[in-house]
Computed example of a mutant assay.
Amino acid sequence: MKLNRKFVAKPWGQPLLPDIFGDRTEDKTGEVWFEAPKGISLQLMVKYLFTSERLSVQVHPNDRQARRLGFPHGKEECWLILDAEPDAVVGLGLKKTVSATKLKAAAMVGEIEQLIDWKPVKAGDFIYVPPGTIHAIGAGISLVEIQQNVDITYRIYDYGRPRELHLDDALAVAKLKPYEMKYWTEVPADQSVSLSTSRPFGLFQIVGTNDEILSQQSGSKEWQVVPLEGEVEVRGEIVKAGQCGICPRLSDIDLTKNGKSLIACAMA
């Protein structure tokens, strides 16, 4: 079936969206979520993000840390950059290892941006964000985000916007060091590739019907399909670009008309 599409206004969003989302919106749309009908619980969440300003500097806990706080699990996420302006950047980790005291002081006086490692991005970059990674998405970027479906975000800095910060919680889970570039890859536009094959989710770019790599995760009971080009049939229902389909079995996915899709599967 197709998941419900929800447009979320954000102060850092964009007033003009790609044609697959109906073009212009009344408010600045920062995110497009795909949600299950009431009564159905998803292990994963897929979002599109569209930025005109920098997002908050934030961090997420791992499974162990989150469970101690009463959550079912932590939050891992990843981004596939779809489009980026020439000067677009993302913040990932710190330029160098610092103490918690120094990071907190920098956040409180508005100097934390100088400690963060801002890296240029372009279309086709795939970035995995392990729990504990201090991160922020910059302006002028469109991306797809796949994440564990849990609402647990600790904001460290928000450029003076009137939103709550969670400095002490963030510092308790943050890795105060540089980002490991082994989690960053460039995705070839015309090839089916594995982007992630380990817990908590598998993620694949599938071009056309070249889907042999999907068999690695055939035991999953939650598959989410995000067509980027063309369309995919999911349990007999057509899912087009700008939509997201879900099914319990790999065999429910028909790629006959697929151009290029992201396919994610939850892993126990």
Rank of each mutant, 00 (worst) to 15 (best):
residue 1 M to C: 12
residue 7 F to S: 10
residue 8 V to E: 14
residue 10 K to I: 10
residue 17 L to I: 02
residue 18 P to K: 07
residue 19 D to C: 05
residue 22 G to D: 10
residue 22 G to M: 07
residue 22 G to C: 11
residue 24 R to V: 15
residue 26 E to A: 14
residue 26 E to W: 09
residue 31 E to A: 00
residue 37 P to C: 03
residue 37 P to Y: 06
residue 38 K to G: 15
residue 39 G to P: 14
residue 42 L to P: 12
residue 43 Q to H: 14
residue 44 L to P: 12
residue 45 M to P: 05
residue 49 L to G: 12
residue 51 T to Y: 13
residue 51 T to W: 10
residue 52 S to E: 11
residue 53 E to D: 15
residue 54 R to T: 06
residue 54 R to S: 11
residue 56 S to D: 05
residue 58 Q to L: 01
residue 58 Q to I: 13
residue 59 V to T: 01
residue 63 D to W: 09
residue 63 D to Y: 07
residue 64 R to V: 10
residue 67 R to Y: 00
residue 68 R to I: 02
residue 68 R to D: 13
residue 74 G to N: 06
residue 74 G to S: 08
residue 76 E to A: 12
residue 79 W to T: 05
residue 80 L to P: 09
residue 80 L to G: 01
residue 81 I to M: 03
residue 82 L to Q: 13
residue 82 L to P: 10
residue 82 L to I: 02
residue 85 E to D: 15
residue 86 P to L: 07
residue 87 D to G: 09
residue 88 A to L: 04
residue 89 V to H: 10
residue 90 V to C: 13
residue 91 G to Y: 09
residue 92 L to N: 03
residue 92 L to Y: 03
residue 94 L to M: 03
residue 99 S to L: 01
residue 100 A to T: 03
residue 101 T to R: 11
residue 101 T to I: 14
residue 103 L to K: 05
residue 103 L to W: 03
residue 103 L to M: 14
residue 104 K to Y: 04
residue 105 A to R: 04
residue 105 A to H: 11
residue 106 A to T: 00
residue 112 I to L: 02
residue 113 E to L: 13
residue 116 I to V: 13
residue 116 I to Y: 10
residue 118 W to E: 09
residue 120 P to L: 02
residue 122 K to D: 03
residue 123 A to S: 15
residue 123 A to Q: 12
residue 123 A to K: 14
residue 124 G to C: 08
residue 126 F to L: 07
residue 127 I to A: 01
residue 127 I to W: 08
residue 129 V to C: 09
residue 136 A to D: 03
residue 137 I to Q: 02
residue 140 G to S: 06
residue 140 G to K: 01
residue 141 I to T: 05
residue 141 I to G: 02
residue 148 Q to D: 06
residue 149 N to E: 13
residue 149 N to T: 08
residue 149 N to V: 07
residue 149 N to F: 04
residue 152 I to C: 13
residue 155 R to N: 11
residue 156 I to F: 03
residue 157 Y to C: 03
residue 165 L to D: 05
residue 167 L to M: 02
residue 167 L to E: 00
residue 168 D to V: 08
residue 168 D to H: 00
residue 169 D to V: 00
residue 171 L to F: 00
residue 171 L to M: 04
residue 174 A to W: 05
residue 175 K to S: 15
residue 176 L to H: 08
residue 177 K to L: 13
residue 183 Y to C: 01
residue 183 Y to E: 12
residue 187 V to F: 05
residue 191 Q to P: 05
residue 194 S to N: 12
residue 194 S to T: 15
residue 208 G to D: 08
residue 210 N to P: 05
residue 210 N to Q: 14
residue 214 L to A: 08
residue 216 Q to M: 12
residue 216 Q to K: 14
residue 217 Q to M: 15
residue 219 G to R: 13
residue 225 V to T: 06
residue 225 V to H: 06
residue 230 G to I: 00
residue 232 V to C: 01
residue 232 V to K: 00
residue 237 E to W: 13
residue 238 I to S: 05
residue 238 I to T: 08
residue 242 G to S: 00
residue 247 C to L: 10
residue 247 C to H: 01
residue 249 R to V: 06
residue 249 R to G: 11
residue 250 L to A: 06
residue 251 S to K: 14
residue 252 D to R: 07
residue 254 D to V: 10
residue 254 D to T: 06
residue 256 T to H: 14
residue 258 N to G: 04
residue 259 G to P: 08
residue 260 K to P: 10
residue 261 S to I: 02
residue 262 L to E: 10
residue 264 A to F: 04
residue 264 A to Q: 09
residue 266 A to M: 09
residue 267 M to Y: 04
residue 268 A to Y: 01
